[in-house]
Design a binder for these strands. Structure first.
Length: 492
RNA sequence: GGUCUCGUGGCCGAGCGGCUAGGCAACGGUCUGCAAAACCGUGUACAGCGGUUCGAAUCCGCUCGAGACCUCCA
């Protein structure tokens, strides 16, 4: 087992793969930035959550007790970094004439539904920003006590240059404060901020602002980056193992988290930073603001301009697993249909495991194969390599079925256990959901009748009748597959 | 403009100094009345140019191309 636990994780902080050693033996604290629930999650958002679902699942598979925390941002971030602005949830609420919490509730439910369709495991704790206003206020006070934040007109800002004097602002994203200064051309001389790099911890709310809470600085709302720091600290401690999120959150969001946490507690909050890369569409990042998106619902229904037909969510999951989480992945109809075929081949091989013949000897390297499953995943969760090895296993299984290779009962039991663990528990794959309809039993009966009649025609070598039935059914979208055990049919 | 990443066979996508991933498609075969399906087999590709090295897709430089972050975004 020791060998299996040599897990290496690419740490964005160092830019290297590092041996994973949890802060507390056998326990792992995992925090992932969740969605802002003012809109439907698109496929790009889903990729990140599916990537970290893989991380969560594999850590569990290795035997770690994992506490997985993923927040719901329901307080609303501002539309931009301007002093004035409306938060997204309030804006949506105003446009749709809804209570902000109605907006939040609607999209949170949708988010959960979608991730369940992708067979993601729920996190252990899913805290909301609005449910942790007190913790956020406390954290601001801690930072102010250290002298690293200041209040102006009921708003509180983090003092980046002052923090940078004794720490390294930019260590995660590889930025230098001087370069950031040079790049920020602050036209607005009226800014409350001492430095353009300073960011809000608390914002004063105008009377017309809908979402606001009382604080020592008056009515207001928390800043953009604070909730993650407050909630990760509360549920995982001042220092925890893994913090994940999309690549686009690296700067400034995660950089600010490090600064806030470090300022408040005196220690760096995270040991391993992980960033999942973007899902692209037409070669460009999927993004809500640019409209270059595909929604899961459009994918499952086939109602979109990108895909020729609907796809089962689990196919999309498999497609995502076929690329490494740190690489960009381009979404296209061709790529997805290729994944679909490969997926079915894999699942068919898994399904025949219980029926394979056993022998007195095993004529291939079962243990070596299993070891490769682990080494793939231990190398920074390399799921595409794992899948390549699983297809190697598929070939062996087919050879066993054809009598070209042999396996003992003990080895088959072991191999089955490991393959199933990796396919179902680690990759989180499952058999596609069968569409059930109320009249399915009737159709089943009718098809049996038709196939029996056709079988009789075939026994009489009445090929024209046999072929006519097959062709007519094909026109209706039903494909017949003849085999030695009789014909089987599938509906497109 | 600044910082950074990437460019792999028809497509997707691993690898990141020597041991020529994998999937899909294509082609050949087995099976089949024919077909489909299924299974088996076949492909030395790494943007271009130059350099380092016994050896480079992998390291260095330049050129071209694509993308990300620097403003909300997973």
């Amino acid at each position: 087992m020791s060998e299996r636990e040599q897990l290496y994780i690419y740490n964005s902080l160092s830019g290297k793969k590092e041996l994973f050693e949890p802060i507390h033996q056998n326990f792992v604290g995992l925090y992932v930035c969740g969605p802002t629930v003012y809109n439907y999650v698109h496929l790009g958002n889903c990729r990140t959550f599916i990537s970290f679902d893989l991380v969560f699942r594999y850590l569990k598979h290795l035997g770690y007790k994992v506490r997985y925390v993923r927040n719901i941002t329901d307080a609303g971030h501002l539309e931009n970094d301007a002093e004035e602005g409306e938060d997204k949830i309030s804006k949506k609420a105003r446009l749709e004439q809804l209570e902000p919490m109605e907006v939040v509730q609607h999209y949170t439910i949708d988010f959960h539904k979608v991730l369940e369709q992708f067979n993601n495991l729920p996190p252990n704790i899913e805290p909301t920003a609005t449910g942790h206003i007190i913790e956020q206020i406390e954290m601001i006070q801690q930072i102010m006590q250290k002298g690293l934040a200041y209040e102006v007109n009921g708003s509180v800002y983090f003092d980046v240059p002052k923090y940078n004097a004794s720490a390294d602002y930019g260590e995660l994203s590889g930025r230098k404060i001087e370069e950031l200064m040079a790049g920020s051309r602050e036209l607005d001389g009226q800014s409350e901020k001492k430095s353009p790099l300073d960011f809000a911890l608390w914002k004063n709310a105008k009377p017309e602002h809908i979402m606001k809470w009382p604080s020592p600085w008056g009515m207001g709302f928390p800043g953009w980056h604070l909730e993650c720091s407050a909630m990760s600290t509360k549920y995982l401690g001042e220092q925890f193992d893994i913090h994940g999120g999309g690549m686009d959150l690296k700067f400034p969001h995660h950089e600010c988290e490090i600064a806030q946490g470090h300022a408040a507690t005196g220690v760096k909050p995270v040991k391993y930073w992980m960033h999942a890369n973007m899902l692209t569409l037409n070669g460009k990042k999927m993004s809500k603001s640019t409209g270059n998106t595909l929604l899961p619902a459009e994918l499952f229904s086939g109602e979109n301009s990108v895909l020729e037909k609907p796809y089962d969510p689990i196919i999309v999951r498999f497609f995502i697993m076929q690329a490494h989480y740190r690489s960009t992945l381009d979404f296209s109809s061709d790529a997805l249909s290729a994944a679909e075929k490969g997926f079915h081949r894999l699942m068919q091989a898994v399904a025949m495991l219980p029926e394979l013949p056993v022998a007195n000897d095993t004529t291939f390297d079962v243990n070596g194969l299993i070891k490769r499953f682990y080494s793939a995943m231990n190398d920074d969760f390399n799921s595409p390599i794992l899948i390549a090895h699983l297809f190697e296993a598929v070939k062996y299984l087919n050879d066993i079925k054809d009598g070209k290779l042999f396996i003992t009962q003990a080895d088959l039991t072991l191999l089955s256990k490991e393959i199933k663990a990796f396919v179902f528990d680690v990759l989180g794959l499952q058999l596609p959901e069968k569409q059930t309809s109320s009249n399915e039993a009737e159709i089943e009966g009718m098809m049996d009748l038709i196939l029996n009649l056709r079988q009789k025609a075939r026994e009489n070598k009445d090929w024209s009748t046999s072929d006519e039935i097959r062709d007519k059914l094909a026109e209706l979208g039903i494909t017949l597959k003849d085999s030695k055990d009789g014909a089987k049919w599938t509906k497109n």
